[in-house]
Every structure is written in structure tokens, then in C-alpha cells.
Write a protein that binds this DNA or RNA. Structure first.
Lengths: 344, 344
DNA sequence: GTGAAAGCGCTAACAA
DNA sequence: TTGTTAGCGCTTTCAC
């Protein structure tokens, strides 16, 4: 097996034909150019023999099109994101595109660098779950003509197409469930402040309160990011002051936060739902198998992934009907044992 | 903001210098070539002004080096894989490399295509979690000089560097724990047959039996892949025949299988560990929070990811000390409530 | 200190 | 039906 790769040139040389002929055959337009069947066969044969594989780099440079898309995710180890990434990868592959993956790790500097990198790689389009606190770099790229779709988090009043979840409505329903079960003192453990996702979910929390004429105690809204530790730490504090605050339920804005809360409750020996009700954003395949099955706000990652790809390729293929570039998918409330009726 | 990107050519033109000068400056070797400070400054300035970003495609073509690595994973939505992917991405980024992600979806055809694709993209190296039932395509590429590292699954007696878990030892310890607790009739729900991972784990199961002089009942070894459904279906069958088989414990070879088992036990109202003990490969941050905290065989993904990257770059940088290219990281048994002592 | 020019592998317009 | 050739954006040798 030779170490230096075969090129169309080497095929052309061994056969005594020209590179264009080889190129045409390799691109399957041999017939169209009425290249003789035997030439076609011969080319395929030597290609095989020389173990030829086309050089995508050269092709990309020439065509100014790479057939790649870039994906930037804050944390692929989060199941919700990894499922979306999978969807994106699969759909892209079907369309003949490959995926460049970047993990921004929740760090805006990395996000900016990753974006620059993808630009330098001339990816044909970008799907990003932005950190969500800054959009200038995204807007600049988009305005410059690079196909781009935001997923999960977006920026209000900024002209960047997105597909996300109707977080507010989901949060509203979740909190109404609590309220309808007699809860009026509900803690909200939030994620990263300033992100649309968080804002919407907290807004849903607030709206549920308003709708039912319940005073909002701002001190009940705590936390700072979507991680496990945040959930754990904030829950710990809440549990320690349960007598003072009279909190009877927690609304968790993310799956990792929820795990932290569960850990804390376990440590502090606080029974769910007897002593504390819990409802959480994000459904997982283990949600019903936890020590108390958790009521969740499910949002379908598959659909979001699909929509994102659809939106992106409509930009790439320039078939864009420039209407409704923004999509909010609905949520679905899954009721389980973690919410209990109380007499208020 | 102009739509057509600036190139070193356009910078050279606006400044009336040559492309080589610009190239040198952009690559930070301006001083080395004793290019005048004002020229350097001017070039940087216009680069900024024209919003120049280097074209990695062109650079790659010229250098025959892409500063990318390819990653092929059977299922990134599996937390264990996604964590490894994250590790790989992060380390690569630190070294100035980007990641091409492919999800083989457990399909050998896709795996082969993905590999071909990465080859065509001239990635500088490949990290793959192979489906594990075929290695010819991998070996061919490796023999041809492409840096390659297998992760998690490997092929015995095939000269392909890998970093994996000491699955056999882990399985051995897990089953010894069961045996030491009086269990002798242990079911094993296996994953994809023919993969090293599965073989090793089943071997560990068998070895534990042999070591303790327990007859192995081959009919107790069931299942066919690492998915949730497999765990669910096999557990259902086991639970229905509990009286006949006298099975007292299940050894699950993977995290998704375990979730399926838990679901089945819940449905069939079989209490863990009172009626059935359970121990599982793969630790997750929710393992201790399940309705029965699960004893697990933990294997540290971070270390595996790091080792894989290390091995890969030692090949890429050709600093390879050609010894010990294979790594097996140890497992760690985490004991929780899901295993109960029984009087045998 | 700076520039000219070849060439990485491929495509496609133009030629024959 | 097939070939010639320019050029995608960049690096680098050689020249001055």
C-alpha cells in the first residue's frame, strides 16, 4: 500500500488520458460527455488499483464550497445537546455534508474563536447553541452572508434565525401545575442569567404567579447556571431554610440542576414529594426511574434538530422563503409523582 | 461588510507589496525576514480593515496538513461517548486542531463511509470508537500511515493502537461482589456480540463463576446490543421466569441496558434489591439517584479521552516511542444498595 | 528586506 | 469524445 496518495493526475498518467477526463468520470458525468465506455471502465479500474480517493481539500478550494457545516455547542456531554448534535450530524450526512464540532464549554471566548475557526474553514453553514449573552460576532457573520441558525437560545429583536423551545409556555404550565396543587411558595432555580432560555423560563414562572394572583418573592429565584453544582448548592440553601421560607416546591430550569437538587434532597433527607414538590425542565430516559419519578417539561430534541437543519439548508440552498425563519417548538408536560397536592 | 472575503492577495494589492511579504507577516515570521516594522504594521492594519481571515482550505492544500482530527462514535447521545468526545475536542482545540465528528450509529456501513470521508478530508489523525465487528478498513488506513487510535473497543491480535477499559477485570469484580453476597444464579445481559467490550465483560462474568466453582448456565447470558430496548426486553423475559430460573441477580453490561432493566423491574413490580440484585457497567451522575441506587463499575472517561489524544498526537508528531501503544485503564467498583446479601 | 513564481489537487471554460 | 489550461488562496524556494 503506497503512502503517497493517488491523484487524478496519477490516474491520467498511467492511462495516458487527461485529468479532465478522469475528473469527469470520477464525478459521474462520463456519459454526459460521451466518454467511451471502455475509458470509463479503465479509469474506474485504475482508480481502484491505485487506491484513489478524491481530495476534498482541493475540491473545496476550487469550488469554494466545502460541504461541511459547523456546530458549536456549549456542552455536548449534556444529553439534550448531544441528542441534537446527533440529529444534526445524521441529517447532514444524508445530504452529503460533514460536521465540524466545537464545544464552547460555556465560554464566550471559546465561542468566538470557534466561530472564527469555522469561518476560516469556509464551512457552508453554522448551527450554534450560543452561550447566549452576546451576539455581535454571530450577527456579523450572518450579515456577511454565512448561513446560520441558532438553536435553543436566541436573542430577542436581533435578526438571527433560531429554532428553540417555547420555554415560557412550558415554564408557565409547569408552575401552574404546582399552583393548582396548592403551592404558592415556589422556589425557582435558574440557569445562566441573560440567556433567552433562562429568561423565558423564569418569565413563565413569574407569569404563572401573576395569573393566579400570587405575589412573587424575588428571593425565591436563585441560581446562576445550568450545571449540576448550581442545582446542588442552591437546593442545599433552600432546604436549610425550609422552615423560614415555607417553600413547598422547586421549579428547576434544567436537567442537570435537577440532578443536583435530588442529590441535595437525598443528603438532607427531605422527602419528595411529601416535604417538597419538584418539577423540572428537560425529560430524560431516566426521569421516571429516579428515586422519585420527576414531573418534567419535555421538549423534543429531534424536532428541534430537524428544524434547525431545515432552516440552515434553506439558507445554504438559497431556496429561502424569507418568512417565518424563527421556530418555537411546543413543550409537553409529563406528570409524575414528584408533585403533590397540598392544602394551602 | 463585504461579501467576498479578503485574501493575502487583496492585502498585498492595496498596499503595493507582494503576497509573500503578507504571508510572512500573517504567519508571524516578519521579524525573522527583517521586514520593516512599518510594513508589518501596515499589513496588520489593512488585514484588520479588510476583515481578513486566513483560508484554512488553501493553507491545508499547500501544507498537506489540515490541523484537523476525525472522530467516529457509534452514538454521541450516549453520555459515556459524549464525555469522551468532549475531552477529545477540548484537548484538540488546545493543540490547535479542530474536530470532524461522525456518528456511525452502530452501522458498519456508515462507519466505513465515515472513515473514507475523513480520509478524503485529509484529517491528520482519527480517533474511533469502532462498532467493533470489523477492522479491515481501519487497518488498511493505519498501515497506510494515517495516525489512528481506537477507543473503548479494540481487536485482539490486530496491530491497531487502542485505549480502553479493563473490562474483564471490572466485570470480574462486579460478579465477584454478587457471588460474595451469595448469588450463584446470575443473569448477564450483554451488549453487541463480537465487540471486544462485550466479550471482555462476558468473560469477566464467566471467570468470576469459574473462580468460585460455580457452573455457568449459558442460557443466563442473553441480549444482543447496548441499547435501552435490549435491556428492557431481556429483563422482561427474565422477570417472567424468575421462579423457574431461580435467578437472583442481573449483571448489566452497559448503562442504557441498565435503564431498560430498571424500567422492566418497575413495570413488573420486582423489588431491587429485595427480589433481585443488580450491578451495572458505567457510572453516571444519576446512578445514585435512581429508585434504587445502582452499584456500578465506573471507568473514567476523562482519562481514556486524554490517553487517546496523547496516543494520537504521538503518532501525528512522530515522536512515537513505539512501545506500549495499547492502554487499558482500570475500573472502579462503586457499591450501592442494588446488591443484597442472600442466604444461598 | 522584499518579490517572482511554482505548485498543492481539483474543476470547468474553452479548444479541438 | 477528449485535452489544455487557468486559477482557487496559500507557502516557500530562489533570486535580487
Amino acid at each position: 500500500m503506497s503512502k503517497n496518495k493517488a491523484t487524478i493526475q496519477s490516474i491520467a498518467d498511467t492511462l495516458g488520458v487527461s485529468v479532465s477526463t478522469v475528473s469527469r468520470v470520477m464525478n459521474g458525468v462520463g456519459k454526459k460527455y460521451r466518454i467511451s465506455t471502455k475509458t470509463i471502465a479503465a479509469i474506474h479500474e485504475t482508480a481502484e488499483k491505485l487506491n484513489y480517493t478524491p481530495n476534498k481539500i482541493a475540491k473545496s478550494l476550487r469550488l469554494k464550497k466545502t460541504f461541511t457545516i459547523g456546530v458549536i455547542i456549549p456542552d455536548i456531554s449534556n444529553p439534550w445537546f448531544s441528542k441534537i448534535t446527533m440529529r444534526i450530524e445524521e441529517e447532514s450526512r444524508k445530504r452529503g455534508y460533514s460536521v465540524f464540532l466545537c464545544n464552547s464549554n460555556g465560554d464566550i471566548t471559546i465561542e468566538r474563536d470557534a466561530l472564527k475557526l469555522l469561518e476560516n474553514w469556509s464551512v457552508d453553514g453554522i448551527i450554534i447553541v450560543p452561550i447566549g449573552i452576546e451576539y455581535k460576532h454571530l450577527l456579523a457573520l450572518y450579515k456577511n452572508g454565512k448561513p446560520l441558525v441558532l438553536v435553543d437560545r436566541f436573542f430577542e429583536d436581533v435578526e438571527l434565525p433560531y429554532v428553540s423551545t417555547d420555554d415560557k409556555q412550558g415554564a408557565l404550565e409547569a408552575n401552574e401545575l404546582l399552583i393548582n396543587n396548592g403551592h404558592t411558595r415556589i422556589a425557582c432555580i435558574q440557569g445562566l442569567r441573560g440567556t433567552s432560555q433562562n429568561t423565558q423560563r423564569v418569565n413563565g414562572y413569574k407569569e404563572a404567579h401573576k395569573k393566579h394572583g400570587i405575589q412573587i418573592d424575588e428571593s425565591f429565584i436563585v441560581g446562576s447556571d445550568f450545571g449540576y453544582d448550581n442545582g446542588y448548592n442552591e437546593a442545599k440553601k433552600i432546604l436549610k431554610n425550609l422552615k423560614d421560607t415555607q417553600i413547598t416546591a422547586i421549579f428547576s430550569t434544567g436537567n442537570q440542576i435537577t440532578l443536583g437538587v435530588l442529590k441535595a434532597c437525598k443528603e438532607e433527607n427531605v422527602k419528595i414529594p411529601e416535604e417538597l414538590s419538584l418539577i423540572s425542565f428537560d425529560e430524560n430516559n431516566y426521569s421516571e426511574l429516579l428515586y422519585t419519578p420527576i414531573s418534567t417539561v419535555s421538549h423534543i430534541d429531534d424536532e428541534i434538530g430537524n428544524k434547525a437543519i431545515e432552516l440552515l439548508f434553506s439558507q445554504i440552498d438559497k431556496n429561502t422563503i424569507e418568512e417565518s425563519t424563527n421556530v418555537l417548538t411546543p413543550t409537553h408536560l409529563i406528570q409524575r409523582a414528584s408533585v403533590q397536592k397540598i392544602s394551602s
